[in-house]
């Protein structure tokens, strides 16, 4: 039984490898849609990695799907916020996005904290927090058990410092986790998505029109409609099938 499970596993990973090489070859030859299909097949196996999303986004962009490209770069960055290639490419794709939405300026400390938080992934922060926990406990031990005044002092202040770091790291990790689990960020994938004042097609006015590749925040959801907020604070209802959650 265990043998069977193992061989099945090996087969699955083999298939992922062959799909990956197939996709890379298709991409190099400029057959973008084939590359997209192969990367998508890897995703359908239920696995993900920042590089997988990054490559899929590249293939989508070359194939002319700007919205899907933005979506997958955002996904790659969700998994690995310090992915520099993905950041660079997302900037290039964003330069070709039609909608130019003025960002509401964020409080500088808040944006700095966010930047710091997203420098490394949630898992890395979790590992750091565990490390800090271990150091804190070691510091406490040092303070309690050592006799020398210098050692006790070191232990005391070390423990205070590391407990603060522990709290920060855990906070960053949890905030990233909650950001990801909230699933409130989405990207418009249809070329045109009119935003209405209420979730119905007939009895509502068109507020504004969004275009492919624009990132929005989901606030509410009613049947086939979602209430989205733009980066500049405007809100409107768009059809659910015009966007995809990151």
């Amino acid at each position: 039984m265990a043998m069977n499970a193992f061989s099945f596993n090996a087969q699955a990973s083999q298939s992922v490898d062959s799909l990956w090489t197939k996709a890379a070859a298709a991409y190099s030859e400029g057959q973008w849609s084939e590359a997209v299909a192969s990367y998508q097949a890897i995703l359908d196996k239920g696995v993900e990695s920042p590089k997988l999303y990054y490559n899929l986004a590249g293939a989508y962009f070359k194939d002319g799907w700007k919205g899907k490209a933005v979506l997958n770069y955002e996904r790659a960055l969700r998994l690995d916020p310090s992915f520099n290639d993905a950041k660079y490419n997302l900037e290039i794709v964003n330069a070709q996005i039609e909608d130019d939405i003025a960002q509401v300026p964020e409080f500088i400390l808040k944006s700095a904290a966010r930047k710091l938080c997203y420098m490394i992934s949630s898992d890395a922060w979790a590992v750091i927090s565990l490390l800090m926990l271990a150091l804190t406990l070691a510091g406490v031990l040092m303070f309690v058990l050592c006799h020398g005044s210098a050692l006790r002092k070191t232990g005391f202040f070390g423990a205070i410092a590391t407990v603060l770091l522990f709290v920060c790291a855990l906070g960053c990790s949890l905030s990233q986790r909650s950001d990801a689990l909230r699933q409130d960020k989405a990207v418009i994938i249809k070329p045109v998505a009119p935003a209405k004042s209420s979730p119905s097609a007939e009895s509502s006015a068109d507020l504004f029109v969004l275009h492919e590749g624009t990132k929005v925040t989901i606030i509410d959801e009613v049947a086939a409609w979602v209430d989205v907020e733009l980066a500049d604070g405007r809100q409107g209802w768009v059809k659910k099938d015009t966007l995809e959650i990151i």
């Binding site: 696995v47 990695s49 898992d123």
Partner: peptide, 9 residues
């Protein structure tokens, strides 16, 4: 490659 939606924390 890791399974989707998994967090260590």
């Amino acid at each position: 490659l890791s399974p989707k939606g998994r967090f260590f924390v």
